[in-house]
Computed example of a mutant assay.
Amino acid sequence: MYKFVILCSIFVAASNADVAQTLTKRETKASLKPLSVCCDIPELADEFQLAKCSPRPPGPCEDVQCIFEVSGFLTDRNTLNKAAYRSHLQKWEKNHPGWTDSIYKAITDCVDNDPRQHLEVPCKAYDVFTCTGIAMLKKCPDTAWKC
């Protein structure tokens, strides 16, 4: 019986040390990574849209601009097709449970308003997409939070 108690004590101590070590690594490691890496936001475009714009055009605007044009999210280079983008986000949300608050925030902040992200060159697609990412990050579900 004495040996059994000792073995159980060793097992419990080893288990607790392993859990404590894992928690310590995750909780104490400092980082200056952008918060955007902390929320694991699934891909917002579908495979067709991505394939049409691959290989990725260079520059901060051209890649997002291509996907927005292929997707019908723009009525012209500088005008968001609000109905199309809103519909896309709502469809995406139905396929990604837990993201309802994020999508609502993205629609409120980025579709219902006219966001400007102040890229050196005006780029409506970049403005809206960056706004969407920020809105989703602000309402990132706990299940997608990695930091």
Rank of each mutant, 00 (worst) to 15 (best):
M1L: 13
M1H: 13
Y2L: 15
K3W: 14
F4G: 11
L7T: 14
C8D: 01
S9D: 03
I10Y: 07
V12G: 02
S15H: 01
N16E: 00
D18R: 09
Q21L: 08
T22L: 10
T22P: 01
T22Q: 12
L23T: 01
L23G: 00
T24V: 05
R26D: 06
R26A: 08
E27I: 13
T28N: 10
K29W: 03
K29F: 03
K33E: 11
K33I: 06
L35K: 05
L35N: 02
S36P: 01
C38S: 10
C39Q: 10
I41L: 11
I41C: 06
P42W: 10
P42R: 05
E43W: 03
E43C: 05
E43H: 07
L44Q: 13
E47Y: 12
E47S: 10
F48C: 05
A51G: 09
A51N: 15
P55I: 14
R56E: 13
P58K: 08
P58S: 15
P58W: 04
G59W: 06
G59M: 05
G59Y: 03
P60S: 14
C61P: 02
Q65Y: 14
Q65R: 14
C66S: 13
C66T: 08
I67T: 14
E69P: 01
G72L: 07
F73A: 03
F73S: 01
T75H: 02
T75G: 00
T75A: 03
R77F: 07
N78R: 15
T79C: 08
N81L: 05
N81R: 03
A83H: 04
R86V: 04
H88E: 05
H88K: 10
L89A: 00
Q90K: 09
K91P: 01
W92R: 00
E93P: 01
K94V: 02
H96K: 13
P97W: 07
G98K: 12
W99E: 05
W99H: 13
W99I: 14
W99A: 11
D101G: 08
S102H: 06
A106T: 08
I107L: 09
I107H: 09
I107W: 11
T108G: 09
T108L: 15
D109P: 08
D109W: 10
C110Y: 12
D112W: 12
P115Q: 11
P115F: 10
P115M: 12
Q117F: 14
H118I: 07
L119G: 13
E120N: 15
C123G: 07
C123V: 02
C123E: 09
K124V: 08
A125P: 04
A125G: 01
D127Q: 04
V128T: 10
T130R: 12
T130S: 10
T132W: 00
I134R: 07
A135Y: 03
M136Q: 04
M136D: 00
L137F: 04
K138F: 03
D142A: 11
W145Y: 08
K146C: 04
C147F: 04
